Computed example of a mutant assay.
Amino acid sequence: MSAASSDSLQYSEDQRDCLQEICNVAVGQVGDTLARKLGVFVTLPIPAINIIKAEQLSQSLKSFSSSAGIYAASQLFTSRQDGSELSGLALVMLSEDSLSDLKELMPELANTDALITETCCNMAQTCLDALSEHWGLGFQSEAPKLVRHESLKVVCESVVSSWKNILVVEINYHLEGRAFNGDLLLLFPDQAIEAMAQRLDELLA
């Protein structure tokens, strides 16, 4: 059977509104957690939600760019309920300047790998916990996996190399008065896009 196109997987207006509302609440919780952890005000826009072809991921990240390499960590997560499975990948990306800011704000984590891993846990796990609560799903996460200092394009290709279509929830963060620019991406492949649509319909019923 041929893979479905991204056009055929698009959500209805009601499904998108429901998903946007839930993500907005989750983002607020992540921003609050990060602000308390770092001791600075966190600014964040409304999450961007799109269903795209996997190879378009790096070009789609309008709010995140870096001429130099970026630092990243990925974290697989899965929910298994009623015999069905919904899996995805959380990807935290940090610019060069972001790393410098984090080293200053979290001096107890001088090691770069530890700093990236801790930031991934703070951002990704808090968001997944919030989504689990509102969706009624119990996401179980694996330990973060570091993606070494690479270009944005290489990082994106490395984590979605075998995927066809992706539901992308992009959450971009800035720290007030600093050069920090971080992205938290929640990436859901084809089968998860369809499973998510069913869950949204249940919430809307």
Rank of each mutant, 00 (worst) to 15 (best):
S6E: 09
Q15G: 05
Q20N: 13
D190Q: 09
P45Y: 03
D113T: 06
D14W: 10
Q198K: 09
V168I: 14
R199C: 09
E142V: 11
Q15M: 10
L187A: 06
L187M: 13
L109I: 13
V168D: 01
P144D: 07
Q10G: 01
V160P: 12
L146E: 11
Y173V: 09
R16L: 15
L76Q: 14
R16Q: 15
L76W: 11
E202T: 12
F180E: 03
E118F: 05
S95N: 14
L186I: 14
L57D: 14
K145H: 12
S63A: 13
W163K: 01
V92M: 07
K164Q: 11
N165W: 02
E176L: 15
G138H: 11
C156A: 15
S161C: 05
S84Q: 11
L203V: 00
D7W: 09
I171Q: 09
S87N: 00
S95T: 15
G136Q: 03
E85K: 06
M1W: 11
L185I: 07
T33I: 04
A26R: 02
W135K: 01
V92Q: 05
V169H: 08
G177L: 13
S60A: 13
Q75S: 02
H149N: 13
G136W: 04
C156P: 06
D97R: 05
Q81G: 01
V30E: 14
L152S: 00
E55A: 09
H149W: 10
D82N: 12
A110C: 02
I51C: 03
Q59L: 15
A3P: 08
L131I: 04
R16V: 12
L57W: 08
L89F: 02
G69L: 01
I46Y: 12
G182F: 02
L167W: 07
S100N: 10
E194L: 15
M123Q: 04
S8R: 03
A114T: 04
Q191L: 14
L99R: 09
V155A: 15
E202G: 00
Q15I: 03
G88M: 08
S60K: 12
I70N: 13
E170A: 15
I49A: 05
M123I: 13
L175C: 12
G28R: 06
Q125D: 15
A143C: 03
S161Y: 12
M106G: 07
S67F: 04
R36E: 10
M123D: 02
S151C: 06
S132W: 06
A130S: 15
E194T: 15
S6L: 05
D113L: 08
F77A: 05
Q59K: 11
R36G: 06
S161A: 13
K62N: 14
E104Y: 09
C18D: 07
E176F: 14
L167E: 02
D17K: 08
Y71F: 12
A90N: 01
Q81V: 13
Q198S: 10
I193S: 03
F77E: 03
A195W: 00
N172L: 07
L89T: 14
I116W: 07
E133T: 11
K153D: 15
A130Y: 10
T33M: 12
M196A: 08
V25K: 00
A130N: 08
F188T: 06
I22Y: 07
A179H: 03
A179R: 03
S84F: 14
S63P: 02
W135L: 15
G39R: 09
T126D: 08
I49N: 07
